[in-house]
Design a protein around this nucleic acid. Sequence first.
DNA 1: GCTACCATCTGCAACGATGTACTCAAACGG
DNA 2: CCGTTTGAGTACATCGTTGCAGATGGTAGC
Lengths: 334, 334
Amino acid sequence: MAVTMNDVARAAGVSLKTVSNVLNDYEFIRPATRQKVNEAIAELGYEANLTARSLRSGKTRMLGLVLSDLSVPYYGELASKLMKVASLRGYRVLVEQSDANVDNELSALQGPFRQLTDGLLFTPLAMEADAVASSRGNKPVVLLGEYILDARFDLVTMKNEEAARAVTAHLLAGGRRRVAVVGAHPEDSGGSAGLRLSGYRKALEDAGIAFDPALMAPGGWWRDAGAAAVAGLLDAGVPFDAVFGLNDTLALGAMHELLIRGIKVPQDVAVAGFDDIDEARFASPSLTTVSPGMDEIAERSIGLLIDRIEGLQPEDDGVHVEADFILKIRESAP
Amino acid sequence: MAVTMNDVARAAGVSLKTVSNVLNDYEFIRPATRQKVNEAIAELGYEANLTARSLRSGKTRMLGLVLSDLSVPYYGELASKLMKVASLRGYRVLVEQSDANVDNELSALQGPFRQLTDGLLFTPLAMEADAVASSRGNKPVVLLGEYILDARFDLVTMKNEEAARAVTAHLLAGGRRRVAVVGAHPEDSGGSAGLRLSGYRKALEDAGIAFDPALMAPGGWWRDAGAAAVAGLLDAGVPFDAVFGLNDTLALGAMHELLIRGIKVPQDVAVAGFDDIDEARFASPSLTTVSPGMDEIAERSIGLLIDRIEGLQPEDDGVHVEADFILKIRESAP
DNA sequence: GCTACCATCTGCAACGATGTACTCAAACGG
DNA sequence: CCGTTTGAGTACATCGTTGCAGATGGTAGC
């Protein structure tokens, strides 16, 4: 079977516990002993058994990441970055897909998934803050990307409102006056959709333009919904000269529908999105959007979570981080 | 602390082992005993400690998935599907990104990552079959998507060559005669790129058209490379009336470059890809491509791997599965 | 020369589950 | 009526680590 500490101890002529001490960088070990042990380890090809270590220490060195679906480009990119950052600090990331479903989110917080991880990065899409608070147990949770502003939680997010305001302002500065907004959920106010919508409305207000509810095309949150929303507006005969997709896939879905119908982008209708996924840069026309600072989000959230896990972060209230955004002006709305 | 089996045993007035027997569906337990135990479990809110179970049983009920990068749409979609299928059989998927780098692939096969999983789904991008064989240890490995045809391995793949031949044939049937091919790696013959290139050449041959090496634009495997390859051809003055991207992101990158330069798709140049990622359907123009049967790949590969792990698959040579493909004719090459 | 101290190393228990071997009583066969 | 089988449950060892509490032996202090 596999080589154990006992085998190493025997080979090095020391006790099992000394091997353990060497591996855990215990201070008081003679260099000669340390070397003997290390040689035995190398010779036998010993590798620590992570399961046993976890059982004994109660730590798994894994972080949980709860998000809706990895097939959504934004989440795929986010997961990729988070995993890379985590690995620099010696942690792995275990992903759980929630499908934006309350039950799945709940079971990620409470079920076996929690046992496997030392802490959670959680993108709450369906759950409320109180529900999260009451079911998170004793392991650290860092909320990601959504704006449940609540002193109980660490939160790493983006400037949803400000950034949405900036993109909308950019559309208005280009002379657009009727900016359709795609992806708004009427009932949502504190989530990404709500905050971005609010930024949109503030930009309209700044420009002295009245908000027209007819321009708000509600629906889902991904590609199909973007296309459907634009189709709905066109079929209903609602006039508009720009579309703001509350995320890039919505915007790209919308743009696709416009182009299919022979509507020119940006000449007839300008289009802007939010997230700056890789695809936005390579769309045709390339998509004007907002880059929400994903690198910063990945670094800060992993850093915060690991600091909590390792007790490096003082025990007080939740830390709130807002990454800076950058407006990316491209062809779809120059 | 957490509730253990011992607590349950005490509460139910039975021995610890009886609790274990109830949990493991041991046959000979009186209904009354079983009920007492189940009641105690429910009352105390007991949850089995997965780490302890793993240590004792040597199984983790996790599958490893090694791929280059989750931010690549194809892999994001694949990972999402694999995780969903695995969870139906009670397994989780732990992802490791290799960046298509040999060292990372090797460490996924040998390092701590293996310990954490009962078996591996492996997309070898850099390693050779022999290297994989010699370092996989004793846990089952199912190769995914690449065509290392080797009796030692289970392999679930797509009809790379046939499908590429079919797309190319479609371009030729549309009257195109100079089909540039983007993403070919000159040195690769057995990997996806090599097989798809070979399918391309066979289609040319079928149509009695000579292969022109000048139309082969080598380079990387993702968006940038697609754009750069087309830019290279155009700048070099190589004439072509179609582009076959060896994957969708290459094709989309290429298409973007064409459109930027005012070249009409499909009027001036038709474009086709391979993979049928979600984005292909919503690109403008939408992308003609090949759907490689990802659902079938996900189901067969997970099924095969778990059957191996659980000893349900007879012990003989590697099983080879090739999923069926579907040609998706869209606007970029009608 | 004896105590006190320190660096260094060791043995044992414990983490929480499962496998093996065993006990014990009831049922059964002849 | 006694030996054997079978159902139901239990005790103990074990998986491979780490925490805790010593054990050891050399040196310093006075």
